[in-house]
């Protein structure tokens, strides 16, 4: 009895941490702030950290935030990341709406489907970025976007893992 009680690390009566409801949005803000890292690169191949964390949370849980929260978060990303104002607002909110609609249709969900959905959203994000750049008189060939798309898709599982750990911590299930 004593031995089995000591063996488990599960803490009885441990609940969610205070402010568990805003932990997801706060983690997205931290990810947005990562774009202030002092990296002076000649190519824009890094993934958009804020977007990755946003869709990782949304794919993990359907009720993580009201969909419209994506709009102010996107505005913050536009301001800090130097995107044209309104770009992340539209793309992030559109992604949340698309996932809301998709949730009504999906019957089965597993890790591969989530990764595929994330890849589609990343493709949409980068294609929108490419199109907006073209409209702002900076038309680069679409082949330039392959590398950042592949890097973002490969980086999604890392974001999903981090978000999963954070979710366990905020709900006190560790």
């Amino acid at each position: 009895m004593v031995r089995s009680a000591l063996a488990t690390k599960r803490k009885i009566g441990k609940g969610p941490v205070p402010g568990a409801e805003i932990v997801p949005a706060a983690s997205v803000i931290v990810a947005i702030l990562l774009s202030t890292l002092p990296i002076v690169a000649q190519t824009g191949w890094f993934p958009d950290f804020g977007f990755l964390i946003l869709i990782a949370w949304r794919l993990l849980r359907g009720d993580v935030w009201p969909s419209w929260w994506a709009a102010p978060l996107g505005l913050l990303n536009d301001l800090i990341g130097g995107y044209p104002i309104g770009f992340s607002v539209s793309v992030w909110t559109a992604s949340m709406l698309a996932l809301d609609l998709l949730d009504r249709r999906t019957i089965w969900r597993d890790y591969w489907i989530e990764w595929a959905l994330a890849s589609l959203l990343i493709l949409f994000h980068e294609a929108a970025q490419w199109q907006v750049s073209a409209w702002m008189s900076a038309p680069v060939p679409f082949s330039f976007m392959f590398a950042p798309i592949l890097i973002s898709i490969a980086a999604f599982p890392v974001a999903a893992w981090a978000v999963g750990r954070l979710d366990l911590w905020r709900l006190g299930r560790q």
Partner: peptide, 10 residues
């Protein structure tokens, strides 16, 4: 000190 390392714009 920094750059737009996440976008196709430089």
């Amino acid at each position: 000190v920094g750059s737009s390392f996440q976008s196709p714009r430089r």
